[in-house]
Design a protein around this nucleic acid. Structure first.
Lengths: 351, 351
DNA sequence: TTGAAAGCGCTAACAG
DNA sequence: CTGTTAGCGCTTTCAA
């Protein structure tokens, strides 16, 4: 690569981005190929509507010139950015890894880019991010949204939205259904002789939190077992420590934590406080995250096909996008079943 | 849920995005404020270059109309997207959480959006993602890139890039420096009576892998200790199982794993194979990830301020962007020191 | 300090 | 099947 053309003193570096050689445009290709710019455009966006020979010629020239369509310029007139925003409340929660990966893969497969933002458990940050990305994406996947129902409806009015782990009329959603798996949890604990279950609650705005608690309370009632609720606690290992202390104060023998982070935090705190798991207290957590299988002791969890949930959410979103363009594939929502995965943190009730 | 509004036959849904009321533009504001569109534009991008009174008036009108600048339209003429791409080789590796969060926070603080992509340990996917995002972002942060030096140089020629955990002349980078912490590892193991250390290698294209192995070999030599290398292994818990088996075959008494995922996988495999840690074999891993503190036994690790590394990488990138616009704050690179965090996976050499 | 005008690179009618 | 022509919403000279 020759360093600099000695003939040109100052030029070559005009424009605002000095070292970036100004990229090949549709016009460069058109000129070099001896066709109109619109033909080049069509060749790329609607190949079947241009003569096979000219099309191949255009592609050849474009390839030779290293032409790459500018996604921004493409998005402006069409309104379509082929970008999807994925909002999660806590990017450091391993629960979201698989969700993110599933969503990313499904989106990539469809030619979409996903921009990921961390809302840090704050409804305000979440709303602000939506606002900021509004015109830069084709739609939003709100995962475990902390926004109010009304705020979500509002957003869904003038944006394409799919929800994850949240149910709301008229807004498509992909959720992990914990109804049956929670029943399994209750029966598992009941069979071990537990007469009372303490739920360590997560964030109030979390739909999953309510869903899980309701399922637990109902199943417990059906089995004639007491169900208590403590919290809410921050959905992290730190929150788990607080939750453990609270449950000790309450004399719990079996706790079911809002999520595995809280459960793992509780496990650690129980150990510090001299409570043996599962001899003194049994611990169950939702979400079979990384680490749940090697905690001390390994954690009994409710496992959901979360990568599939991520995929489904993207499908729901793309379905709506297609519907807007007249496509038929639009679904109201999906619920994927989860199941109990028994490990060593649950055992017979004490006494 | 009412199925369909019976009152509206077909209308209400015109344009390509039916239910989206066409958003307020700069022209709407201009008209309503009785000024030229360019004045509205200036008011938002260069406030000090428009009369204070008109500026306030424009803002008032814009606020009343709910005007939001369209980032795409803004990016087209200016070439600036205020978006940064962050590429990581494995989004499910907890190591990257804090990196991502640090980068995200620093970027947001500067008004930038980050798009995150998972390259799944593949140089091809990585190169492809760069290519695809080329014109949609202002710059790239390549974290633990799996690309070759020459490919990275090539990319850095016509893109703004910052590297994480990779050193390369002329390309700014933020790295966790493991030189001193690796010396600490060697001295720690030596003081426990180990005479030989086995390194469980990570991906060949990983700079960290080479960096760590070199540091280990050098420190071992200085202490008159043997250093062996096994691998490469896939940088995951699965790779760790293979690594454990290999090290058992080799009779290792002290292993240092490329990363904590491999170390945790090895821990599990050692347990399955009846090897006690640390009585039979000591285990150390790089990266003090989520889970390292509650594995069985808790893992001795090399901990780095990885969130700060993420921040630094963004700073490096923004520094270059500013330099392109004439700003001075441009730095070649930063190296943040890491340190040994001793837990229970290391102990006296057997015999 | 402000307005008019010319694009940024691409898409999408509309003719031909 | 292909070319011409208008923009998409905004920025940015250039004059006034």
């Amino acid at each position: 690569v020759p360093d600099v053309d000695p003939g040109s003193a100052a030029p070559l570096r005009r424009g605002r981005r000095q070292r970036l050689s100004s990229p090949t445009t549709i016009h460069d290709v058109a000129r070099a190929a001896g066709v109109a710019a619109s033909t080049v455009s069509r060749a790329f966006t609607n190949p079947q509507r241009v003569n096979a020979r000219t099309r191949e010629h255009v592609f050849a020239v474009a390839g030779r010139l290293g032409y790459r369509p500018n996604p921004l310029a493409r998005a402006l007139p069409s309104g379509r950015t082929t970008t999807i925003a994925l909002l999660v409340p806590d990017i450091t929660n391993p629960f979201f890894f698989d969700l993110i990966r599933g969503a990313e893969r499904q989106a990539s497969a469809a030619g979409y880019t996903v921009v990921l933002t961390d809302t840090e458990e704050s409804p305000e940050v979440e709303a602000h991010n939506v606002d900021r990305l509004r015109r830069a994406v084709d739609g939003f996947v709100l995962a475990s949204s902390r926004l109010s129902d009304s705020r979500i409806r509002e957003i869904a009015t003038d944006n394409v939205v799919a929800l994850v782990n949240r149910r709301l009329d008229d807004v498509p959603s992909a959720v992990a259904d914990n109804t049956d798996s929670t029943r399994q949890v209750v029966e598992h604990l009941a069979s071990l002789g537990h007469r009372s279950i303490t739920y360590l609650a997560g964030p109030r705005p979390s739909w999953s939190n309510t869903h899980r608690w309701n399922a637990l309370r109902d199943a417990a009632k059906r089995h004639g077992i007491a169900a208590e609720r403590l919290g809410p606690f921050h959905p992290s290992v730190h929150g788990g420590a607080a939750a453990a202390d609270a449950s000790i104060g309450q004399g719990a023998t079996a706790v079911v934590a809002f999520n595995a982070l809280v459960a793992i935090g509780a496990l650690q705190r129980f150990a510090e406080r001299g409570k043996r798991v599962p001899q003194d207290v049994s611990v169950v957590g939702y979400d079979d995250i990384f680490g749940a299988d090697f905690s001390s002791p390994p954690l009994t969890t409710v496992a959901a096909p979360i990568q599939d949930v991520g995929r489904a959410a993207i499908d729901l979103l793309l379905g709506q996008l297609d519907r807007e363009r007249g496509g038929p594939n639009y679904r109201r929502g999906v619920a994927l079943a989860s199941h109990l995965r028994i490990r060593q943190s649950t055992g017979p009730a004490p006494h």
